[in-house]
Design a protein around this nucleic acid. Structure first.
Length: 489
RNA sequence: GGUCGGUUUACCGAGUGGCUAGGUAGCGGUCUGCAAAACCGUUUACGGCGGUUCGAAUCCGCCACCGACCUCCA
């Protein structure tokens, strides 16, 4: 474990070499989705960012417990809804049980995650399954004196907390500024201070999602589940906490406050935040209505989409940008990603067929170093891809005969691509597989052979006819030096 | 208004005080019965104005513009 992995910590705002609290074990908690509608492109960003981190940690031979929560309790939507629960609202609209809604969109989310080839987290705890833990946590915070009860609701006492601890250190907030800028919200008159936040809310009569507690029949506050579940599965102090940058404040700030108030410990050692996906320069978000769901991307069924994009194209597209940069959606960018990915995968196929030479004219060891350095530098996947494309050039040049590779270097190169492209970047070749594919491949081989016969006899009329009619059927033939390749239009 | 971040070539997107990032597109070439594809090569940069420096796109200051967060949000 002599990893030189450097991670950017949002708390300290600098990159630092990652060292786990209890090597070789690593605890990682990532904020998962609220399952009340289809996952969109934005949800793919943290999924892939933290999948990349997870995969790289595994590559470095850490034993990782990766926890990603499922928020199925629901949070307040906005004042217009009078505190109505997000999931509850959707349930009324569709005449479904709240848990039915949750199940439906959870299934859909997990399917999308599988399509994107993300590894399953070690634990995917649901907020609704941890109400007891959340109640216990509230009790602890009350005991320590950092919360107060009013009318069956419990609020976190930010002012009192800030006398001993630093509230706002993660997001750079200053308490006085917060006081001045906090908006009037429902239930605010109950709170001692506008910046106090709910740990437990008493349910209004129409509120469907409700649980008994020592204070009232109600539901847990907005930020509590992550504190309760991360503590339960990873301990009072754990290594990595991830999530979108938009969760920095207030969500993660409140999480720190809750956990610190309860245990006296700083809960998280490395805060890692992914940036947003933008569309026309603006954040893609459900609330802004400018989102494209993952299913829509995969099928092409959205007015903004010129075509369908495969899950691996989406994955490659996201990996081409560093996780802390915004990445702008456009058809042009996705099409570029699609072509780039094909080029990469094609070279890997070519690599399998290369014949060894007695000497090498390229330095594969240096390539290994470059690839590791890129990943070690705060998961610089775009830099890694750039190095991998150096490898692509080596392969194609060797195929052309302008570069040479020894048998050992060929093996090393195969291992390198296997490790970085498939294991770490989590890409896969989508074309291979399926009985249908196999049948089509066999049939096409026969047709291509017949056409080759015609070509050998210089019967251009026949060979062109075969090509033209295949084109009408949606298949494009590409003549190669020896034989031909084909691709669906 | 406060806090934080960004502005890179046609597009996406890295990076760094002096050395071609990369992908896509474009252009030139190789291959080829033709076409397409593939492969090889290659042009166009670092928001503006000052400063520090032998040297800045990279550091500092000011300005302009854009965005995120401050409310559920990935």
């Amino acid at each position: 474990m002599k990893s030189q992995l450097k991670l950017y910590n949002s708390l300290t705002r600098r990159k630092k070499i990652f060292t786990p609290l209890h090597p070789p074990y690593v605890g990682m908690y990532v904020c998962g989705p609220t399952v009340y509608s289809e996952a969109h492109l934005g949800h793919a960003r943290p999924a892939i960012t933290f999948d990349l981190l997870y995969r790289y940690l595994l590559h470095l031979e850490y034993k990782v417990r990766y926890v990603r929560n499922i928020t199925d309790v629901g949070h307040l939507e906005n004042d217009a809804d009078e505190g109505e629960d997000k999931i509850e609202k959707k349930a009324r609209l569709e005449h479904l049980e709240p848990m039915e809604v949750v199940q439906k969109y959870l299934n859909s989310f997990l399917k999308n995650m599988q399509d994107l080839n993300t590894l399953h987290p070690s634990i995917e705890p649901r907020a609704s399954g941890h109400i007891i833990e959340q109640i216990e946590l509230i009790k602890e915070i009350l005991e320590k004196g950092y919360a107060y009860e009013i009318n069956g609701s419990v609020y976190f006492d930010v002012l009192k907390y800030s006398k001993k601890y630093n509230y706002g250190k993660l997001s750079g907030r200053v308490l006085e500024d917060l006081q001045a800028s906090t908006r009037t919200l429902d239930g605010q008159n109950e709170k001692k201070n506008p910046f106090d936040f709910a740990l437990w809310k008493k349910a209004t009569p129409g509120h469907l999602m409700r649980w008994p507690s020592p204070w009232s029949v109600g539901f847990p506050g907005w930020h509590l589940e992550c504190s309760a579940m991360s503590t339960k599965y990873l301990g009072d102090v754990f290594d990595i906490h991830g999530g979108g940058m938009d969760l920095l404040f207030p969500h993660h700030e409140c999480e720190i406050a809750q956990s610190t108030a309860a245990t006296g410990n700083e809960p998280v050692r490395y805060w890692v935040h992914n940036n947003m996906i933008t569309i026309d320069g603006q954040k893609m978000a459900r609330s802004l209505g400018n989102f494209i769901t993952l299913d829509q991307l995969f099928t092409g069924d959205h007015p903004m989409l010129q075509q369908a994009y495969t899950p691996m194209t989406i994955r490659f597209f996201l990996l081409q940008a560093h996780y802390r940069s915004t990445i702008d959606f456009s058809n042009e960018a996705l099409q570029a990603a699609e072509k780039g990915l094909q080029k990469l995968l094609k070279a890997i196929e070519t690599l399998k067929k290369l014949k060894p030479s007695l000497t090498s004219t390229v330095d594969i060891k240096a390539l290994w170093n470059n690839c590791h350095e890129a990943m070690d530098d705060d998961l610089n996947s775009p830099m890694l891809l750039s190095h991998l494309f150096d490898g692509v050039k080596y392969i194609n040049s060797a195929n052309d005969g302008s570069e040479k590779l020894t048998a050992a270097d060929l093996e090393s190169l195969k291992k390198l691509f296997n490790t970085f492209v498939f294991d770490i970047l989590g890409l896969k070749d989508e074309a291979s597989g399926g009985n249908e594919e196999k049948l089509a491949d066999d049939l096409m081989k026969i047709i291509i052979n017949l056409r080759q016969d015609a070509k050998n006899k210089k019967e251009w009329g026949i060979s062109d006819k075969i090509r033209d009619e295949l084109k009408n059927a949606g298949i494009i033939l590409k003549d190669l030096k020896d034989g031909a390749d084909w691709v669906k239009e």
